[in-house]
Amino acid sequence: MRHIDYQKRVSLLVDGALEQSSVDELLAHLEECAECTRAYEKMMSLNKALANVKPSLADRSLANKVKVRISGESNSAGYAWNFSLLKQVPIWALIAILAVGVGDMAGKTLTEALNSYDTSHNLENLIQDNGESLTDVLIDFGQSENGR
């Protein structure tokens, strides 16, 4: 086996990832080979040094920022869910509701449409619409009241 192949195993040994059957063979080689022993020592000190260059976060503000964003996302997801409920109503159902509503108003004056309950005749007595729109009725009513 070449030195480079032993050194690949040294790298595994440093990480504790070398199979036990290969460990004994490698250790026997290291006892005889100065080049591979140097490689082992360098890789071991590199590992220690790398642990020292671990960048750290000085405070918890980043974690807090993340939580705030998630909370905001969670709230907006709630609104989206409400809208999605509306989206679940089939379009034909919406058209049917609209058609029934429009159909119910057909042939009626504004007062009749707005006051379909049995007390509508009381309002009819108070404000005569004569089939006119609500605006016209209110203007007429105002004028007649002012004219008194």
């Binding site: 671990k54 960048p55 750290s56 976060l57 918890r60 980043l62 974690a63 993340v66 939580k67 998630i70």
Partner: peptide
């Protein structure tokens, strides 16, 4: 989920 954030923020940052 916040606890998961606390646990792993530094690792993800690094």
């Amino acid at each position: 989920f916040g606890e998961l954030v606390d646990r792993h923020t530094t690792l993800v940052y690094r």
